[in-house]
């Protein structure tokens, strides 16, 4: 197991390296000039050229790439933002708290709610409860996040005035963004739980548990649920991973100064170090979450431990 984790950590390094090259190349290819963004529209061509030289932007692709990789992976320096002239890492750490809070809260609530709904649907297959759950989850999965977020703002913030429409002032400000983030996830988790639970409750070991004299509720909670969790954990993990990158749309709509909105601004400004730094942090977080999922698999299903050891 330890060997497996070590192997995965080594892989993580490779992945992060690959992501860095890709994001560097993408930023190199796309149109736009950071020097012009920095100096404002009226700057003279000479000033712009001088700044480009200073930033090293006139060097060929390979030189820039190698310099970037060397700085990042050997000197562990992601760089300073062109726009704010502050170290990118400091800026990301200032903002990641908001993103982490929203991601954790919405993933947690989506997990609890989604699994509960999925279990209720599966154990009452074809009843009204099941049909309602299926319809609702289909609706929530298909519904665009931005539309739902705008609806929430218009109803609960603007019309009813219960909750603040934007910014982060108190815990109340987190409610609407979290709800917008968790609806789709809840629906996904519920659908996955339902289908995998339906597969499990037809298994022979369920009949064995019944033959022992176990009650229906305990058969579901002690036997079927744990076995149906593997695919659900995958969904939860990727949900959390995605949200760690900051739900860009939601952060924009609610003006939350999280990682997502930071990246959005950075891309618009052609703030190369900020974009690269942001993507790197997200890639590392995402890989870490995936590794965490793999470890959770073993806790849930002991057969995975053997599978890992044999690899």
């Amino acid at each position: 197991m330890a060997k497996y984790i070590l192997k995965r950590v080594l892989w993580l390094i490779v992945i992060v390296l690959a992501v860095s090259v890709v994001i560097f190349s993408l930023m190199f290819i796309i149109d736009g000039d950071p020097a012009r963004s920095i100096l404002s529209v009226n700057a003279s061509q000479e000033d712009i050229d001088a700044l480009r030289d200073k930033l090293g932007l006139n060097d060929p692709y390979w030189v820039q790439l190698v310099r970037f990789l060397k700085q990042t992976f050997l000197e562990f320096d992601i760089g300073t933002s062109y726009r704010t002239r502050k170290p990118v890492l400091t800026e990301i750490f200032e903002r990641i708290g908001y993103t982490l809070t929203i991601a954790s809260v919405s993933t947690f609530v989506a997990t609890v709610l989604g699994i509960y709904l999925g279990v209720v649907a599966a154990t009452n297959q074809y009843s009204w409860k099941d049909n309602t759950a299926i319809f609702l989850s289909l609706f929530c999965v298909s519904m665009p996040e931005f539309w739902f977020a705008l609806m929430l703002v218009s109803i609960f913030a603007l019309q009813l005035g219960w909750l603040p429409p934007l910014g982060i002032d108190s815990w109340k400000s987190y409610i609407l963004p979290c709800i917008s983030c968790l609806v789709g996830g809840t629906a996904n988790i519920a659908r996955q739980t339902r289908s995998s639970m339906l597969g499990e409750i037809r298994q022979d070991y369920i009949t064995t548990a019944k033959a022992k004299g176990q009650t229906k509720e305990k058969i579901i909670t002690r036997h079927a649920l744990k076995n149906s969790l593997i695919p659900v954990i995958t969904v939860i993990g990727s949900l959390f991973g995605t949200q760690l990158g900051g739900s860009v749309v939601v952060e924009q709509i609610f003006s939350i100064p999280g990682v997502g909105s930071y990246m959005m601004t950075a891309i618009g400004f052609r703030d190369y170090p900020a974009v690269r730094g942001g993507v790197l942090v997200i890639a590392i977080c995402f890989s870490a979450v995936i590794l965490l999922i793999d470890i959770v698999y073993v806790l849930v299903d002991p057969r995975f431990s053997e599978r890992y050891n044999n690899q």
């Binding site: 070991y205 064995t208 002690r222 849930v300 299903d301 002991p302």
Partner: peptide, 8 residues
């Protein structure tokens, strides 16, 4: 093969 709970 299937009568026992694999995760217990």
């Amino acid at each position: 093969m299937t009568a026992l709970n694999p995760t217990m």
